[in-house]
Nucleic acid binder design. Structure first.
Lengths: 328, 328
DNA sequence: CTGAAAGCGCTAACAA
DNA sequence: TTGTTAGCGCTTTCAG
């Protein structure tokens, strides 16, 4: 910048003014400066600007895995909003490990991001307290923050969606409805289990509920066990996208009513089409990013908790009738 | 840092030494400093460090769309390698728009990223020349850089994969093989078309080739037109994942041999399973990131051009025999 | 082993 | 409309 000033025969500050499109610069002078910039191939050093202004024009995004379609949808939506606000996105995957989540968040904070969007992996976010107090706003997405942290949160209606799916199966005549969920330590998994239980009421049978990490072998074993019962399930409700696919593989063509939580590409092309409870991943990203930028801009008020609706998409698998009872 | 120094009763530089784990600090002093850091909740301001050192420990990643499973696979792999090198990833989606690609790259450069990984949308990358000359290394992924730019490149064997797929269909008795490709301005689309033509030789029929943006209506119209011919195609080769899915929808259950370029989730669950040419998106990301970090570390030598192998995964759809010729 | 001073490139505040 | 000066928080250099 010094060189540019010399080249254009003006003061440092004038160059700064031109670079920042600040008003109050003679057009001719500005042109001379721009010419000098062009000639010298100058480009502003953002680090210095950041140091001076204390604003990085970047936000940090911690998700579970960029490779997962649900989270990459969130990611893309956040990115779009950020660009509109002139911000860049620093992102990282926690791989569902609390330690990595913490490390990423603290790294982002050390880089003085203007704000954070976090899909939490852990349950303890006390490490964030000092950052929040220091004025870095954060929005939690998909899952709430650990106890004692008063922070904006954007969630899907997990419980309502699960209730809806289960009720849909009930309405189609099913009474024996199994639930395959992810590990109950995961917030969304627990909420969906609750919704399932609420809809089922007295019909709940603990033997038809299985919650653990979605591995094919586990799912297959569980399904085999359930289907081998005297009064086997006639319908299945799967607690997330990965589980739905795993279950589809494990079922290996056996015909059974099925509704999955979370939509997925090609669900409509399978036969029958897979009925799902669809979450709006893009909406999740968009809403949380907008909330964050409102906070960054100084928007005050108490922490908000937004819940986005989900919707049931019937495609056939959720509308299959119960198998005719076996004549015994 | 000044406060920490005061709190610990040492000089600024000593704090700096402790924070950076520099050798030559009395253990007791270091402990005192660390205690002060803890008490004050201090964390180093990376911007200032960057300003001084000129190294940001971050790389820029420009892809087409984080929401696309192929690119999010690349993305995740890049991220993993970056973390191992103590680097963060700034990423952005070009949405296949050259202007946005350019803007992202220049924004990243203004932030003084240590290096760039780019899936180019445009064909002209002259804007990068000054950055490269200034010492910011770049690696192009999935598609090569525009003419006149001597830069590391990591590609898949698009042509070979297309040749393999087409030959596979030929081996299963097909002689009328249609090709649906993406817009020919996209490098990978062109390469795959070439491979298809090479394998087909004299059997090429221009009426069985359609290349454009993968919209359902277009694909449906093309397929209808082709299937209405006197000698309709008995097999279809689709040029990317999006097109494969679109074609599956457009075929709406009509039985026809099919191989798609690029694997996708659930390809095995459709009936018949969809045979594909699988690209290693994670490998693409990993190899390019490793190459980039080698350059950042000062690794010299001429620009490399790495080609990753692809593999054919038969699942049924690519092994269907031609329909018995209609008795006319 | 520890410290003082200079300066990275920029912008804010104040003059002229 | 333009310029001058100070200082953001850190690391580098050189001196104790």
């Amino acid at each position: 910048m010094k060189d540019v000033a010399a080249e254009a025969g003006v003061a440092l500050k004038t160059v700064s003014r031109v670079v920042n499109n600040e008003p109050g610069v003679n057009a001719a002078t500005a042109d001379r400066v721009r010419a000098a910039i062009e000639r010298l191939g100058y480009s502003r050093n953002e680090s210095a600007r950041v140091l001076r202004q204390g604003r990085t024009s970047s936000i940090g995004l911690v998700i579970e895995d960029v490779g997962d379609p649900f989270y990459s949808g969130v990611s893309r939506a956040v990115e779009d909003v950020a660009i509109r606000h002139g911000s860049l996105v620093l992102s990282g995957s926690s791989a569902e490990e609390p330690a990595r989540e913490r490390e990423l968040v603290l790294t982002f904070c050390a880089r003085r991001v203007d704000g954070l969007i976090v899909v939490p992996a852990g349950a303890d976010h006390s490490y964030l307290r000092s950052e929040l107090a220091a004025g870095t706003p954060a929005v939690f997405v998909d899952r709430p923050a650990g106890p004692g942290l008063d922070v904006d949160t954007v969630l899907c209606d997990n419980r309502g969606g699960a209730r809806m799916a289960t009720a849909h199966l009930l309405a189609h005549g099913h009474r024996r409805i199994a639930f395959l969920g992810d590990s109950p330590t995961i917030f969304t998994a627990g909420e969906r289990e609750h919704g399932y239980r609420e809809a089922l009421g007295d019909l709940v049978d603990e033997r038809l509920i299985s919650m653990a990490h979605p591995e094919l072998d586990r799912v297959r074993a569980d399904l085999d066990r359930m289907l081998g019962m005297d009064d086997p399930p006639t319908a299945l409700f799967t607690g997330n996208g990965r589980l739905t696919m795993t279950a589809l593989r494990a079922l290996a063509g056996r015909r059974m009513a099925l509704i999955g939580f979370d939509d997925f590409e090609l669900a409509d092309l399978l036969s029958p089409g897979v009925s799902v409870v669809s979450q709006d991943s893009a909406g999740l990203g968009r809403v949380s990013a907008e909330l964050l930028f409102r906070r960054i801009a100084g928007g005050g008020g108490p922490a908000e908790r937004v819940q986005l609706p989900v919707r049931l998409i019937p495609r056939g698998s959720g509308e299959l009738p119960p198998e005719a009872p076996r004549s015994s």
